[in-house]
């Protein structure tokens, strides 16, 4: 039987987690936060809210699990191939003019997007002078990202995405399959740095020409979205690019006046002032 969490119970646990462990989920969209918590209660077999709260507040080894299950870690390589086609054709030639390329994948989860971008840079002959930063709130997913090992069952879809995104090589040349796993070439991961970073509370840590943050803002309320976009704005060089998820937009954000969406329907904004 599913436990139906009450609003005040969710507030309670959000306060507990912030006070005890420093993770602040108060700016997360309420309905999705509730859904993630209910899911966790079911997965981990709690019979009441009190039992769950007891576990969270007394077992400091459990918080990792809570953070992991609240954050959504569904991702894929070259998701929305038309976006990557535009990046390949329009953005990468501009990046090529820089002596050193810095890219930030904020909320990168298990890193599929970072590997996607590394492949595009490698094919453009730019990977050697690039550094890709992948950050996430959740250290467990970053451990996976560092390894660059993904399920081999996903490769057929990724290969299709790769071709649709204008890829000319044989996608399977980028990984070695071993039973159910595919390990991506270390020449790709050599240029990656993975580190925890919490968009709710941490600040800018470098400047970049390209920032990806796809399907992360949808989980945040408006004030938190504004905060995060400020962090990106202060991390992005003039004439740099910000890439958002297919259903996300800068349109209603305070920083929008300094950005121009590139032509077409892709969610890519150029910083123009």
């Amino acid at each position: 039987m599913e436990i139906n969490l009450k609003e005040e119970e969710i507030e309670q646990i959000v306060q507990d987690v912030a006070a005890l462990y420093g993770y602040d989920f108060s700016g997360y969209s309420k309905a999705s936060l509730k859904r993630r918590l209910q899911r966790l209660l079911t997965l981990d077999n709690f019979h009441s809210f009190a039992e769950f709260r007891h576990k969270v507040t007394t077992d400091d080894g459990y918080i990792g699990r809570v953070v992991e299950e609240i954050s959504v870690n569904v991702t894929e390589m070259l998701r929305d191939p038309s976006l990557y086609k535009v990046i390949r054709e329009k953005i990468i030639p501009l990046l090529a003019t820089y002596p050193f390329i810095r890219i930030w994948h904020a909320g990168c989860s298990t890193g599929e997007e970072v590997y996607s971008m590394a492949i595009l840079l490698k094919e453009a002959g730019l990977l050697h002078k690039s550094l890709l930063y992948g950050t996430d709130i959740n250290p467990t997913v970053l451990e996976k990202a560092r390894k660059g090992i993904f399920p081999v069952s996903a490769m057929q879809q990724y290969s299709k995405n790769y071709i649709a995104a204008g890829g000319m090589a044989d996608f399977s040349s980028y990984y070695t399959a071993h039973y159910s796993l595919a390990k991506f070439d270390e020449s790709l991961s050599q240029k990656m740095v993975f580190s925890t970073h919490n968009l709710v509370s941490d600040f800018s840590f470098n400047s970049f020409q390209l920032i990806f943050c796809r399907n992360v803002l949808i989980y945040f309320d408006k004030p938190l979205q504004a905060r995060v976009l400020d962090v990106f704005d202060s991390s992005l060089e003039l004439f740099g690019f910000l890439v958002l998820g297919a259903k996300e937009s800068l349109r209603f954000s305070p920083v929008v006046s300094r950005y121009r969406q590139i032509e077409g329907r892709e969610k890519i904004w150029k910083k123009i002032a």
Binding site: S29, A31, R35, G245, K247
Partner: peptide
């Protein structure tokens, strides 16, 4: 509802999108 996203209705009668499982 857009393809490939979950849609959630918030208590304040607005929408949230969600790209979970």
């Amino acid at each position: 509802c857009p393809p490939d996203y979950h849609v959630l209705v918030e208590k304040n009668h607005s929408f949230s999108l969600d790209y979970s499982e």
